[in-house]
């Protein structure tokens, strides 16, 4: 079997934090990159600084939190249909 006894970088303490902060840095860089290109907007909102970044973040958080609440109504036991 593969993967037995081998040490993995992701298993080291702190590695996940590094990934997290790398992502944060990337996001910051992309946010600032909004100043670097010429916009060809269809709609006025696209001219806001970092519109796509904010949109992606806000709606993703909204999606997950809304879906979490949906569980209250939709979630049943795994064998719900079996009985």
């Amino acid at each position: 079997m593969k993967g037995e006894g081998k040490k993995y970088w992701l298993d080291k303490p702190g590695s996940v934090d590094k990934v997290y902060w790398a992502l944060c840095t990337l996001c910051a860089a992309l946010f600032l990159a909004d100043a670097l290109y010429e916009k060809h907007p269809h709609y006025a909102v696209e001219e806001w600084f970092g519109f796509y970044a904010l949109f992606g973040f806000v709606f993703s958080v909204g999606l997950v939190l809304a879906a979490r609440e949906l569980r209250r109504f939709l979630m049943r036991k795994e064998d719900y249909y079996d009985d």
């Binding site: 997290y20 992502l23 944060c24 990337l26 996001c27 992309l30 946010f31 990159a33 909004d34 970092g50 796509y52 970044a53 904010l54 949109f55 992606g56 973040f57 709606f59 993703s60 958080v61 997950v64 939190l65 879906a67 979490r68 569980r71 109504f73 939709l74 979630m75 049943r76 036991k77 795994e78 064998d79 719900y80 249909y81």
Partner: peptide, 28 residues
């Protein structure tokens, strides 16, 4: 930008325990 910030949303929610855990379940 859209994708990186969507990923950031996942990372933040997951890190601070807001991401709904995977549960054995049936959804209606």
């Amino acid at each position: 930008q859209l994708l990186a910030f969507a990923a950031l949303a996942f990372a933040v929610l997951n890190r601070y325990g807001f991401y709904p855990p995977e549960l054995r379940s049936t959804n209606l």
